[in-house]
């Protein structure tokens, strides 16, 4: 999902010896098992803190980078109504990034550090944002599929054991349902339109379907951090469980507007009520995570440019604050 980089094996940090005493760990786990929320100043195992910092900051970075694919269509939205909606959605993504950075900061990391990691390219963000938005229908497909997948993942995060993360997710989920609905509405409208418009919608679904399934991260048997995150109740459902839920709710939505999900193996298993879907191209997923997706370099360049080009604004705000403080003191 927005934090799928967590499922990859990572560097040094995980190999540090645990310094927490068995007694403290047991007391902590008991609180978790009782569904108590953990708050910023409470004692927590170092590994719990590190996992959360990584997960929440990756999630925040994804929101920030996630503004770019849609931002690409702000000036070319087909009507003023669509433009206002898209602008509001992109602003929401910025807001969501900020809620999440705040939540991560309660764990003792600084905003500065997180932003530096993103700009240096050492932090991960969701693979989905490294795909290009080629047509207006992509904006529909992103809202419908990408935000749909995000919601599927984020609703259980509202019950995450860490209080500030859980509260940020509640706020985000409330705002995100509009994102998905506006996307589906775009698809509905295209599908009711001319043959060319319908073909455009189909093409967008063809290109976004598989990357959307990859958003849930590797298969459960490949997912390296999942078991511990489940025990700590950071994560409530496995990657495959969430992916299955997403497929089950999304396929009928595609059928409703007469679009075909691009999967020859897709079949409804009557007995279980679940759709069986084809094999995901994990090689593509790994390549995108590693930085070799179609837009990885462009996304990072745009982010760095935005940061550098905004430096004078931050400096001016700082200078103004200092001038006023000096006057007030005089």
């Amino acid at each position: 999902m927005y934090t799928q980089g967590l499922d990859q094996k990572s560097g040094q940090e995980d190999r540090q010896p645990a310094v927490d005493s068995a007694e403290d760990l047991a007391r902590f786990q008991a609180r978790i098992d009782d569904e108590e929320k953990i708050e910023p100043k409470d004692w927590m195992p170092e590994a719990y803190r590190r996992t959360l910092v990584r997960q929440i900051s990756q999630h925040a970075h994804s929101e920030i980078i996630g503004m770019q694919p849609e931002g690409n269509w702000l000036t070319r939205a087909p009507t003023l109504r669509r433009k206002s909606i898209l602008l509001a959605k992109v602003q929401d993504e910025a807001g969501h990034g900020l809620y999440l950075y705040s939540a991560a900061e309660t764990l003792g990391t600084s905003r500065d550090e997180m932003v530096d990691q993103l700009l240096a390219g050492t932090a991960k963000y969701s693979s989905i944002f490294n795909y290009p938005t080629l047509t207006w229908a992509d904006i529909g497909a992103i809202g419908w599929l990408v935000d749909g997948a995000a919601i599927m993942n984020q609703i259980p995060l509202c019950r995450c054991s860490y209080g500030p993360y859980s509260r940020a997710m509640i706020r985000i989920c409330k705002e995100e349902s509009f994102h998905q609905r506006q996307g589906y509405e775009i698809m509905v409208e295209l599908c009711r339109g001319s043959d060319e418009q319908k073909a455009m919608a189909q093409d967008a679904l063809d290109r976004w379907w598989w990357p959307s399934l990859m958003m849930f991260g590797p298969n459960d048997k490949e997912s390296v951090h999942s078991a511990q995150s489940m025990a700590w109740k950071i994560k409530r459902f496995s990657n495959d469980e969430l992916r299955q839920k997403f497929v089950d709710v999304t396929v009928p939505q595609a059928e409703f507007i007469g679009l075909r999900v691009p999967d020859d193996d897709l079949v409804l298993d009557e007995a279980s009520g679940h759709y069986r879907y084809g094999e995901i191209d994990w090689n593509e997923f790994i390549q995108v995570i590693k930085g070799n997706g179609r837009c990885n370099r462009e996304r990072m360049t745009t982010r760095r440019d935005a940061h550098e080009n905004g430096a004078w604004v931050r400096e001016a705000a700082q200078a103004y604050a200092e001038k006023r403080a000096a006057r007030a003191a005089a």
């Binding site: 939540a103 900061e105 705000a317 103004y320 604050a321």
Partner: peptide, 11 residues
Amino acid sequence: AGSVHAPDDEM
């Protein structure tokens, strides 16, 4: 509700 960074109170 949450927190923000800012150079001064007004911002």
